[in-house]
Design a protein around this nucleic acid. Structure first.
Lengths: 364, 364
DNA sequence: ATCATTTGTGGTAACGATTTCAACAATTTT
DNA sequence: AAAATTGTTGAAATCGTTACCACAAATGAT
């Protein structure tokens, strides 16, 4: 009873955030003058300037970005919207990081949204971003044909697509050459002697996965290998689980694949798990190439060969394109396509055409 | 990398975002009435209601959250600030995800900021968040004694600390029992026979690392083992590199450690690399226990024993505490301490007290 | 000494939404 | 018939900032 609650004491001291009004009153000038001092927009007497500055410091005044945005209607929110499928996926978090680093240099903050590949969530967040009047939006669209996003573009909102493209709209876009990445990975496996190559991937309404499948198929046909639908499994790229299930299925086939190309990092993790569960050895029994080079890819057993996407670089470029766009709103939209790298580690080995293993891995 | 100019220029008429004014004009009513329809705050004639609704739909009107916030001053921004050291660290991205999932359910969006453990960045972002008049801030403070954050709390802004605590302030906090996690991990190594246990960690101005070091030391002393400063290395937890360097140093000692306890996920990755570079085998030559259970921890070679922190859960709880706080602003601040789990995999083995290996791993 | 210019400052209208107050008509009650 | 109530609407203030306009005082030019 005697002890006064600390919390209540704190409550009593709650200070409302200082406004221009209060600063002006304290300095004995008009709000106009205070504003001038802060934005040093026009001449202010050195005397009053210091007086105002003093009041600003004493009150800990900070302008309200909300109020500022009310005036400046467009392009001055210093906020950038970023919608990604899942922040827990290291590929996307590296994109985020790339965007953030560029944004921070320009004093921009990020509103981050996870779409979970759900159109409803994407829509909700796009509405929020518009409503917050962000200066721009960066995102990998869930569907190639976006309706909502079209409206935003029409509204003059700078939009940059990253990782995936839009089909019906011309907006600035940063993607990786998915076709080439898949083509090279598949070709590598073919050159190692593999003929039955399982392909685990995701749905074709994502432009990236559509392109990767095309790359896989083109590699096969250009090496004279027919495409066998039995070896192709498309599922939910968000879950390692689906990679595990598909790998299990494929390894249960009569003529089971001798190699896998898995077009997504999480599914790769699942596929590896399935292979181990079947008591098969990588690369002795099954070769595998994944997509996305994660920090741990070289630490797993065995070190994993992957198609590396420059995620950070993509984010960086996307953010830079956004800033170019607001500086030069009328320039033509640009598509930047970055090159993937095939990083070969120890998860692939050569086999003879009849499926027998070579004694040693040959470099073809 | 190709830069391809897309073929069509977007020269459709740029439509400005519809405002209440325009809707009102189109519907032939006053803005007051439109507002009433949208917030169904009081009775509106059914006839005019449908007319207004039609205009809203036709114009694709959406209220400006910026303007709304101007009126409502406090607690209605539906924005939550989240400052984390590094989104690329899976531990933090799981916290983010936990926060985001709870926030989304309440129609809140997140402003995400990476502090990089730099006080200047933290300060910048705290200022932005205040200036954006977010409804609350969730973050692991860089320093136990925050000045800026104290001001925000005094301003009545709901703040929740996660992962780390503040020393001089009573705010809602969610942490893991770091001491226990470190104590258990170290004890495990001691019970396996290890006496020279290297400890690689980070600076004590982070409450979490301070507590982990205490746990490590307490485990040693309570087992009658003197704390040897030579086996303790503190560095930059953001870089695997520092884990690598420290492990190299420790393995270069005359009486080198037979086991490592590394109190952070990235440093663990670096330490493993160093051990491999020295051509030592885990766990045959060196045992190791890491901190944070990553999705790949069980896939690496060998599967890694770790202290698991419930990151997602921590984020979830932190967000829930925030919502509790805005519903009941006067309740006393609460400290939630979640339990870590020692996950034993294959990176530790028993040794005899003289450092010789047992033929088999014994379960003590 | 007069007029033109510069310097320094304040008043006020936006920006877009919500909310209080008030107006007016239609209806019901006294 | 007058008064009171109800239903439906609009005008105006407000939030904090910036920008435009106005105006006095000081300075400079002729």
């Amino acid at each position: 009873m005697y002890i006064v609650k600390l919390w209540e004491k704190v409550l009593l001291e709650i200070v409302t955030m200082a406004t221009l009004q209060e600063v002006a009153k304290k300095a004995g000038v008009s709000i106009t003058t205070v504003s001038r001092v802060l934005n040093n927009s026009s001449k202010v007497n050195e005397d009053t300037r210091t007086r105002v500055q003093g009041a600003v410091n004493k009150l800990g005044y900070q302008p309200s970005r909300v109020a500022q945005r009310m005036r400046y209607q467009q392009g001055h929110s210093k906020l950038l919207g970023l919608i990604i499928p899942d922040i827990q996926n290291p590929y996307y978090s590296s994109i985020v990081r790339g965007v953030e680093d560029v944004a921070y240099k320009r004093n921009y903050a990020l509103i981050l949204c996870n779409s979970d590949e759900e159109a409803a969530k994407e829509k909700f967040y796009l509405e929020v971003l518009r409503s917050e009047s962000v200066d721009g939006v960066i995102f990998p669209p869930i569907h190639e044909h976006g309706r909502m996003i079209g409206e935003l573009v029409k509204n003059g909102l700078p939009v940059v697509c990253v990782d995936r493209r839009l089909a019906n709209l011309t907006v600035d876009t940063v993607v990786v050459n998915n076709h080439k990445g898949a083509y090279n990975a598949t070709s590598e496996l073919i050159n190692l002697g593999h003929r039955r190559i399982g392909f685990i991937s995701s749905m074709p309404h994502f432009s990236s996965f559509k392109e990767r499948r095309q790359g896989y198929e083109d590699a096969l046909t250009s090496h004279g290998i027919p495409v066998n639908e039995d070896y192709i499994r498309l599922g939910d790229q968000r879950k390692p689980e689906s990679g595990r299930v598909f790998a299990h299925e494929l390894l249960g086939l009569d003529k089971k694949p001798t190699a896998f190309f898995v077009s997504n990092n999480l599914m790769t993790l699942g596929a590896i798990e399935a292979i181990h569960q079947k008591d098969l050895k990588i690369p002795d029994d099954v070769s595998i190439i994944g997509f996305d080079d994660m920090p741990w890819a070289k630490s797993i057993n065995p070190p994993l060969s992957v198609v590396r996407q420059p995620g950070y670089e993509m984010g960086r470029r996307a953010a830079e394109m956004f800033f170019q766009r607001i500086e030069e709103p009328d320039r033509e939209p640009v598509l930047v396509m970055l090159e993937p790298t095939l990083v070969l580690r120890d998860s692939c080995r050569a086999i003879s055409p009849d499926g027998q293993k070579y004694a040693e891995i040959k470099n073809l």
